[in-house]
Amino acid sequence: MNIAVCVKQIPDQSVPGKLDPGTHNLVRDGKLILDDSDSYGVEMALQLVDRAGGGEVTLISMAPNGEVSGIRTALAMGADRAVLVSDPSLAGSDALTTAKVLAAAIRRNPFDLVMAATESTDGYTGTVPVQVAELLDIPSVTFAKKVEIENGILKVQRQTESGYDEVECPLPALVSVTAGVVEPRYPSFKGIMAAKSKPVDVLDVAALGTGPLTTSQEIVSVRAAEERASGTVVVDEGDAFQQVVEFLEAIKVI
């Protein structure tokens, strides 16, 4: 069972995001970390390979600047190796360009399953996994809250508006998971040490052989959204519920 897991390295989300005023690209200076949403796919992949009795978990990632600190976190969890496509020309890539790069990187090695998060925490377009699946010409199941593989069949519980669907499909396939799918492990000290010597192949776009990649959307302007002003904040001394009652009265909800 060989599983390719798409992971994204993102700026620390405790610091608000910024767009470069000139290029309108996301500012990605400073340390990048593993997107928390991706830790679930990494964990799920490790468990599936374990249950299958062998195979490899390969991380697939893209970054304009060769950053690997987030990838090392996923390697420390137990992934076997990583492929990082790093090229300055990828700065500001749209979702489809990102998917083309990831699909080309995945295709370089045999795989049974591709794993991804439902969406990234910083860009949250939520389209990249299924775009990758279409480019690889494989079936996809999104919004997975439970994933199993039995006799070469992927079995997924997929969240729906009213509950969930049981979806099955033969491998190879792509599955995108929610944060409810599994509890990710913390990297152990041993894992962190081992991660330092695990292979990370760094490729540029030319090595992928995708041909020219162009982003076909243009950002015209960026403005701050209308801010909601914060209102009154009170510290509860045992009677703050009264203020809630008065507020609900004032807006005629009660």
């Binding site: 489809l96 377009t125 939520g126 389209t127 775009q131 699946a133 999104t142 982003t215 959307q217």
Partner: peptide, 18 residues
């Protein structure tokens, strides 16, 4: 999102989300 993503990659059409 599934539909837009499939169509986008099938026909090389860009998507704007959110």
């Amino acid at each position: 999102r599934d539909a837009a993503a499939r169509l986008s990659a099938k026909l090389d059409l860009p998507v704007l989300t959110n």
